[in-house]
Write a protein that binds this DNA or RNA. Sequence first.
DNA 1: CGACGTGATGGCACTTAGTCCCATCACGGG
DNA 2: CCCGTGATGGGACTAAGTGCCATCACGTCG
Lengths: 189, 189
Amino acid sequence: MPRWKPDARVRLIAAAVELFAENGYENTTVIEIAERAGLTKSTFFRHFPDKREVLFGGGEVAALLERAIEDLPAELTPREVIAAALDAVGSQTFTPETREFSARRRAVIADNPELQEREALKGLSITAALTDGLVRRGVPELAARIAAEFGALAMDIAYERWSGRGCGDDFGVVARRALDEVYEASTQS
Amino acid sequence: MPRWKPDARVRLIAAAVELFAENGYENTTVIEIAERAGLTKSTFFRHFPDKREVLFGGGEVAALLERAIEDLPAELTPREVIAAALDAVGSQTFTPETREFSARRRAVIADNPELQEREALKGLSITAALTDGLVRRGVPELAARIAAEFGALAMDIAYERWSGRGCGDDFGVVARRALDEVYEASTQS
DNA sequence: CGACGTGATGGCACTTAGTCCCATCACGGG
DNA sequence: CCCGTGATGGGACTAAGTGCCATCACGTCG
């Protein structure tokens, strides 16, 4: 019998999402989250640097994007690189099992400015990761940054659609479609 | 003789930027800022909703953008609308007198994640304002969003160049140049 | 078989951001 | 001369986040 139940981190995340959904983010204290997970405030802050981060996977997505781009063949266009990166996220992070969690998470973030700030910063880190990946492949800085913005925009749109209603499609599929729309619309801007 | 010295808000901002530059954002307490401005913590929070906001003009820029777009002739292309909006910011917010303040402000934000979050959120509100303005003129949603992203990107680049070294050029000029570069590079992405 | 280091946790004290509410007091108008 | 108004002062309070030390199961090593 282990002294502590396993998966403290996972339990904290689950408890947090539950409580945020029940009472709202602002009306939930870290102590309440920890107690519902059978832990204490100390332990909470050992797993997450702050209360917001319990809803964000700490550079996980950005790191995944960088790695995915690294492994791609050299002759792809920026657009193809971005598309492949979105696929990687769809197959490794935004999987069908996490869809429901994502939907609740999105709802919580949607009505809290503090969380929107964190989300906005994560968005920047994603754009930066995509830009970096492209620049390392020889794409000129500005063109890379723009392709990255397109990718981030497609990801936003796809995340909204995918987590929103149960459309059934995998994230990768939704994201590729969104990316096509973005490139299409970019000619009218 | 007035009971209180005027411009409490301005004094708070000045005190904050000074202290942040001297000791860093994290090592500066709200009480210290207030005291240097000859005021108290209570008064600080009466003027700003939180410590971060002392460095941000509260929806000011976004509101200015919306208004500027409102007043433009109807037959302009999205690109021309964005360019005009950037001009407005250059002539009404990022004026030569505020350049030095902007430079110090940028340096403070650059080494503090908490402030970068706020900055990221302000960026989103700027993009949203541009998108809204374009949509109200009949530009399709997605095309508007992309043009807005281009505008925000140009603004970022321009803000960096303009506040960075004393290049002498007005913000509007720098921003228009940046916008041209962005549209040029978008064909290679 | 027993001592020991390790690692995840509990617990407590402390600082600071941010909220609330009430007191104060110059100023202008009646 | 009195009174309302508005910006400020001040103090109590909550909650986020930090730091340090204690605890104790587990595996390992002697």
